[in-house]
């Protein structure tokens, strides 16, 4: 089981998004080049309809997971956390929608980094509680490659 580094309010030190758009609540201890995040999907989440968390929510969760990774790396260099934008999404696939009450766990892997453009691979899993070790043995419910542009 992986150690939790930051939770809820503390996540704000890594990303520029604020409520009601924040879609990560846990940042686990990374194992470079892999980074791990989580989100408990609560009923009031604005990306839910009738208890179903939408594909847009999953993609934004993946983007914020990547942003948190970039924020974590920036903090390690004593730099300010910058905003980042999605430049491109490739090969996104959603096998099944997460539902309220689910814990979504995401693995971000850096594939390449050229100047301010970072290419990552994201894989999201539904798990019963925040433990990355469980995620790696199950099948992802969503995955994609994403290009992020740092502002």
């Amino acid at each position: 089981m992986r150690a939790i580094l930051l939770r809820e309010e503390q996540i704000k030190s890594l990303i520029c998004q604020r409520e009601p758009v924040i879609l990560i609540d846990t940042f686990f201890k990374p194992a470079d080049p892999e980074y791990y995040t989580g989100l408990k999907i609560l009923p009031g989440n604005i990306f839910c309809r009738e208890g179903i968390f939408s594909a847009e929510g999953v993609i934004e969760h993946m983007a914020q997971s990547s942003a948190a990774m970039l924020g974590y790396l920036a903090a390690g260099r004593n730099e300010q956390v910058k905003t980042s934008y999605i430049g491109e999404i490739r090969d996104f696939e959603l096998v099944d929608n997460p539902r309220t009450g689910d814990f979504l766990e995401t693995i971000i892997e850096i594939l390449s980094e050229v100047m301010d453009v970072i290419l990552v691979r994201a894989e999201s899993y539904v798990v019963s509680e925040p433990v990355v070790s469980e995620a790696v043995v199950s099948k992802p419910i969503a995955s994609c490659k994403m290009k992020l542009v740092i502002n």
Binding site: C16, Q17, R18, E19, P20, V21, I22, I46, S54, A55, E56, G57, I59, E60, A63, T83, Y85, I86, I89
Partner: peptide
């Protein structure tokens, strides 16, 4: 839209996923 309260405070930018949502 409530989206701009958090994306980003004082600097409203339409999230890419919201543009995808409009298409859907």
């Amino acid at each position: 839209s409530e989206i701009y309260r958090g994306h980003f405070p004082g600097e409203p930018v339409s999230p890419g996923v919201c543009s995808i949502g409009m298409i859907v």
